[in-house]
Amino acid sequence: MEEFLTIYEVNKEKIEDFIINSIHNLGSLKDNEENNFSNIFSVFPSLELVYTVNKDTKIQNSPNYYRNKLDASASNQSRSYIIDKLHFKDKSTAFSSPYISSATRSNCITLTIKEGDIIIFLDFKIETLLERLELIELNKPFHTLTKIFYAIAGFSMVLLALFIILYSLGGFFISLIIHYDFTLDAIFKPIIALTLGIAIFDLAKTILEQEVFFKSYSRNSKVDTRMVIKFLITIIIALSIEGLMVVFKIAIENYTEMLNALYLITGISFIIIALSIFIYLTSKKYK
């Protein structure tokens, strides 16, 4: 939800101008109260709630008009707390800052328009408004399907990472306690497995955070780039440990094979250089 508010703040002027221009094209809004403002609801899919307030007393003098119902219990309540938080575009129109509506329980902004002796309040749902203006891409059925898929894949990766960690620790203790194996392989292989387990878990965590629990809708999101960088760094660490183990093993057993260790370390160095170039280019892109 924080992302919605960020996108809204960046495009605030454009959004407010769009709403005002569209409202002015409808003519007098007060005349639409006879049909429960249905014409206005049809024009604005993001519109959730309409009601009117007395200009002098700041008391609501109409029911809450929703898209498919009305609620008379909201009448005769003071709305001065909202009016005090408005920023005026001109003498007759003003907008509120984003807030959570007590009536709809969604993040919204309120537009107020003075007509005669009343003030008309219109609550717009931010999520739908951003989608309408193509500032976010949101398709709820497809989003639900992808969310389920990512949840299954993410939690499966978490279980796989946990299995790798437990397997490596189990093998390590078996080697030390049962087989009394104190070789480099017995020490370094569990470290490599643990590092790979961390890499898999970190990737799963990023997928679950960004695609399941806190879905990113922004087209310009840096999430994918950060995910690739974090995953590659973990893999580089695992390969570096493997290279260190190979160097020690060859140094102890057979110096003639040291060239193979050099090839491995050189390959890791090329990956580090490629990752550095990737980070540099992406950082320039987002400046």
Rank of each mutant, 00 (worst) to 15 (best):
I192Q: 04
H179G: 02
I82S: 01
Y286L: 11
S75N: 12
A238L: 00
E257P: 10
E242N: 15
D56L: 14
N107V: 11
I174A: 13
Y65H: 04
I236W: 01
K287R: 14
T57I: 14
Y150R: 06
N32G: 06
K14N: 06
E242G: 11
S102E: 11
M227E: 12
I235Y: 00
D71R: 12
Q60M: 14
L169V: 11
N107E: 10
H24P: 02
G197A: 03
S240G: 05
N254T: 08
K12V: 01
G116D: 09
N54W: 06
D56N: 15
F270N: 08
G116N: 09
V247R: 08
I119Y: 06
D31V: 14
I19V: 03
K85F: 00
T146S: 15
G116H: 04
E16A: 00
Y255P: 14
Y65R: 00
G154H: 03
G197K: 02
S92E: 13
S96M: 04
Y99H: 04
E134L: 11
L70W: 08
A103G: 00
H179C: 02
F270L: 13
D17M: 01
G170L: 14
C108P: 03
D123F: 00
N68E: 05
I271P: 07
I265F: 09
D224H: 11
N68K: 04
L262V: 10
Q77P: 06
Y99I: 00
I7D: 01
I19N: 00
A204F: 01
F155V: 13
A274P: 08
L184W: 12
V43K: 10
T112I: 07
L196D: 00
V246N: 09
G197Q: 03
V10G: 08
G243L: 06
R105Q: 13
I241H: 04
K55P: 09
D181I: 01
D17S: 07
Q77C: 12
K89I: 11
D224S: 15
I236K: 02
A204S: 09
E253P: 05
Y65S: 00
M1S: 08
L138H: 11
E211N: 14
I177Y: 08
S38G: 10
R67M: 04
D71S: 10
R105Y: 12
A74C: 10
D90H: 07
K58N: 14
V212R: 06
N39D: 14
K205V: 09
L262P: 05
L196S: 02
L194S: 04
L29E: 05
N107T: 12
R226N: 15
S78N: 09
S38Y: 10
S218R: 07
P190K: 02
I120K: 01
L111C: 04
L86P: 02
V246I: 12
L160G: 12
F37I: 08
L281A: 12
E48Q: 09
A186P: 03
N68L: 03
Y51W: 06
